[in-house]
Nucleic acid binder design. Structure first.
Lengths: 351, 351
DNA sequence: CTGAAAGCGCTTACAG
DNA sequence: CTGAAAGCGCTTACAG
């Protein structure tokens, strides 16, 4: 059993409250120098560390944040988690990680459990549109933030990027490369990123007087296997697309796999654009053209947003929205074109 | 503020202990049916959930496990975490995740903090050989387990695989493919996997009367950038290797990058073998021959090992060691060879 | 400068 | 069948 304040007090022949005061370096109280020295020696000797649970009960703070995501094996969420941890650690917070695998039930169960544990804040990256669990969370009066996906427009503290603009950039890039028949590997319509990125795709098409035909929009979910199935469907059409915009980089990875299996060259036979710019995107061959969003910063900003609410004692639906940036790589352009585009892109980022 | 037992008791006009009994469905006590009905209605109405912190203080259990790893963005640790979570969730546990980035200081700081929080158990996947922090942990009398890496042979509860055998398998495969000049992209000598996999490499070489020359063994750490640098060094030798065995798949990924940059074909100009069989290994082009270890099971077994100790109240240095399996893909063999090897491998796994 | 008390929100052995 | 008390390990306003 670890040492307690009471034991220490008995050994130092003082009252437990006195020991507590030197442990916490209580500024308002001056402790007698001999008493203090005696207690400090004991503290060092026993390597005393106050019981965090008892402290948490008394102080009403656990110094724990919780993160709820679909799946940590998805590289997007790995980077996001690191951002959150980096934002929370300087303040002494550690982070509980909960995976939902996209199940609303699991999400709800995790949230209930976290509230019962009295975590100081929750960061949710697995929310659905009009999500009952989010509405419930809202009423718990606990600091929280949604990341990447929102639930009901404008109602929640949120960190993310403008998905319509990002998707529009991606699609415009394909159009300006000369593509006319462009497919969309779409996200789920129950998730904001799915809906908004599809909207951005459609917007760009319409703006260029191209038709966003329904048969060219195939739901792919957000990960590789759905990306493969959706690409297979599109490429089996009478008149398959010459380019696809994928709702995420992982869906784009699925498209690479199918292209390879079908013997299609990327980008000559099929150009591909992704979304997020996960580290893997730059390692694919050819490199994946994608929409860069600052994933790590999503995380640290979300952590800060929650910490602000903890500090202020108020839940404020502040929103932090980053501008997405197109990053052009080999999956949409030949070598020479990529070099030019890189110059443009890096200039763009500097602005 | 969430509802408390005391408030509920006042509303139901009973003593808090009575409410507590129906919340916990106390089996030894029979509660009057009318009282019970009244309280249960109240519980549903208020959606009462006991304060986990207070409960934790009284019951001396937090229902929290902690996982300490180098970096969650490394796919190996993503899969490991999922295994741990899957092993812990059925028992009502949630999991704190701590990244060390390989820093002993951060590892130590995290462990101290976790102990102060009174987590019920710790799973450590970032340990070094003869690690002071591990020795300290051992003396805390808290359930724990090391995963993948061990620290002092045999002293700690451990889940992993036999790294010497795995590395030997990998190297023997290269030798039997006709390679003579074989390099090793080695892990750090401060980590058990680094030392043991190098030992397995050397063992296989010597057994085949080949020389394991020091100049052909380059320290690469465990991730991609180190893998790139080490591969560059080996390929710059007077007489570069025709094949390399990489201490991890991520290091092998670094080798792919350098091979590509140097215009070397894999496997014709440079054969590559990795270790771990992360999901990425099968997606590389060509597919990465590697040593398969059951990463997800490492996690769930470690969770079970810790839960066993929690149940028994004893820290027992039980060891769970899995046999590694060679998985042959395109990075060491032509198409026809791969097909044959797959058949052999799948038979091997069935045994 | 230090002690004694109260209380954070629970659970459970002990009474009755 | 239910109440009252003690206690988990802290912190801090209140005394002295």
């Amino acid at each position: 059993m670890p040492t307690t304040l009471k034991e220490l007090a008995a050994r130092a022949k003082v009252h437990p409250s006195t020991v507590s005061r030197v442990v916490n370096q209580d500024p308002s109280l001056r402790i007698g120098p001999t008493t203090r020295a005696r207690i400090e020696a004991l503290l060092r000797e026993t390597e005393y560390r106050p019981n965090g649970v008892a402290r948490g009960l008394k102080l009403r703070q656990t110094l724990v944040l919780a993160v709820v995501i679909p799946d940590i094996t998805n590289p997007f969420f790995g980077a996001l988690f690191r951002g959150i941890e980096d934002g929370a650690a300087p303040r002494g917070y550690q982070v509980l990680l909960c995976n939902t695998d996209g199940s609303p039930d699991r999400q709800r169960a995790h949230l209930h459990s976290l509230i019962a544990r009295r975590v100081d804040g929750v960061i949710l990256a697995s929310s659905f549109l009009k999500d009952q669990a989010v509405r419930w969370l809202r009423h718990q009066r606990i600091p929280y933030a949604l990341v990447n996906r929102f639930s009901d427009e404008g109602l929640d503290p949120f960190v993310g990027s403008d998905d319509v603009i990002g998707a529009r950039l991606a699609t415009q890039h394909l159009i300006s490369s000369g593509h006319v028949r462009i497919g969309h590997l779409a996200g789920q319509s129950t998730v904001s990123t799915g809906v908004l990125r599809r909207r951005g795709f459609q917007m760009a098409m319409v703006e260029s007087r191209l038709r966003a035909e329904p048969e060219l929009q195939a739901e792919a979910g957000f990960v590789e296997d759905g990306g493969m199935r959706a690409t297979e469907r599109l490429m089996a059409l009478q008149e398959p697309p010459t380019a696809v915009f994928a709702v995420t980089d992982m869906v784009a990875v699925g498209a690479y796999g199918v292209a390879r299996r079908l013997g299609l060259r990327v980008p000559e036979d099929l150009a591909i654009v992704g979304y997020n710019d996960i580290p893997l995107a730059g390692r694919l061959i050819p490199g994946l053209t994608t929409v860069h969003v600052p994933i790590h910063e999503f995380g640290s900003a979300a952590a800060r947003l929650v910490l602000e609410q903890i500090d202020s004692g108020q839940v404020t639906p502040k929103r932090v929205v980053y501008a997405p940036q197109l990053v052009i790589r080999g999956s949409t352009a030949s070598g020479a074109e990529v070099l030019n585009a890189v110059n443009v892109a890096s200039r763009g980022i500097g602005e």
